[in-house]
């Protein structure tokens, strides 16, 4: 059986019969299998090989392997051709759609999107999926809706002394053999205060495993100020209100090695206008191991009030 199947019927077009022409002998489903074991970029690029190759490289058999099963309903919806459904007519289109339009899953608390070239999965945990200490106290935090966010509600920090945000994700839903990095995605409001020169402790690691800690800054303008001031942290320490616990005048969370090597870490602006700060990296070896990855943002040592932060979520995406 299965032997029919040459993709190409253009044998007559090449004058000298080639000794080996893989595509003329390989069954379509074998070519599709090969392409499904490459990456979306490879499958896309190889559609330029020839017209017959293109039809395999664009087939659903190939792209089905690049789209997560959770997104299948978008595809089946569209085949019913209801006017409201998305104009998605192939798995390749579905894949490309998911690269630019994160899909809300887990009751809208988690968003899933795909990295275009590798097809690897990216997630963002919404604030509803995070543990935020004091979130239920309206004087400290409130829920708000903003345009250009992927979640209906995001968390706005009014003010706290104890800032603690934690998120957990099961590693089995991450892409295997992938180096991921976690980012806090946020904005500062015009009245933001208390973050200037304030070291924030961030951690990423498997629950029950090794945790990687480092110190970062959430001060959006810190990176710019740094060019003019060499030692902003010192100044921050001296300016701190006296409310701090006596005897703790020494520089707080010690500068970590990475800070000494690469300089302090400040937020970067994203293409969507939000800010992000890297919390740490995690290498996800296999897709089968069941483990929980915990990411956290902590400022509980300084004891000073801080406020004016809007948290969209924690993003986990492959590191280039």
């Amino acid at each position: 059986m299965d032997m029919d199947p040459t993709v190409s019927t253009r044998r007559e077009e090449s004058d000298e019969a080639k000794a080996v022409n893989m595509l003329k002998v390989l069954p379509v489903d074998c070519i599709a299998k090969v392409l499904s074991l490459t990456t979306p970029a490879d499958a896309c690029r190889t559609s330029l090989v020839s017209t017959s190759f293109k039809s395999v490289a664009e087939s659903n058999a190939v792209w089905d392997c690049f789209v997560p099963p959770e997104s299948d309903y978008l595809f089946s919806n569209s085949s019913s051709s209801s006017p409201s459904s998305l104009p998605i007519s192939s798995k390749k289109e579905l894949f490309l759609h998911l690269c630019h339009h994160p899909l809300l899953i887990h009751d809208g608390k988690l968003s899933l999107s795909l990295e275009k070239k590798s097809g690897k999965k990216c997630y963002m945990l919404s604030p509803k999926d995070l543990i935020i200490v004091w979130i239920d106290t309206p004087a400290y935090w409130r829920w708000t809706s903003l345009p250009h966010t992927r979640f209906p509600e995001v968390a706005e920090l009014i003010k706290v002394c104890w800032l603690e945000i934690r998120g957990r994700i099961n590693t089995c839903i991450l892409s295997p053999a992938t180096l991921y990095a976690a980012y806090l995605v946020f904005k500062t409001t015009t009245g933001s205060y208390g973050f200037e020169s304030q070291p924030i402790e961030v951690e990423v690691g498997l629950v029950g495993g090794e945790i990687h800690k480092q110190t970062v800054y959430l001060d959006a303008y810190g990176g710019r100020r740094l060019r003019y001031q060499i030692v902003p942290r010192r100044i921050g320490v001296f300016n701190r209100p006296l409310r701090r616990i006596p005897g703790l005048q020494a520089p707080q969370p010690q500068p970590k090695e990475n800070e000494e090597l690469n300089g302090p870490k400040y937020p970067k602006e994203r293409v969507d206008g939000w800010l992000e700060i890297e919390l740490g990296e995690f290498f996800n070896r296999s897709g089968k191991d069941n483990g929980e990855l915990e990411m956290s943002v902590l400022e509980v040592n300084g004891g000073n009030w801080k406020g004016g932060l809007i948290v969209q979520g924690i993003e986990i995406r492959p590191k280039p």
């Binding site: 077009e13 080639k18 330029l48 017209t51 190759f53």
Partner: peptide, 11 residues
């Protein structure tokens, strides 16, 4: 890839 599969462009 063309060379690998012994194919020529027919676009």
């Amino acid at each position: 890839v063309r060379k690998f599969f012994g194919l020529e462009s027919d676009f």
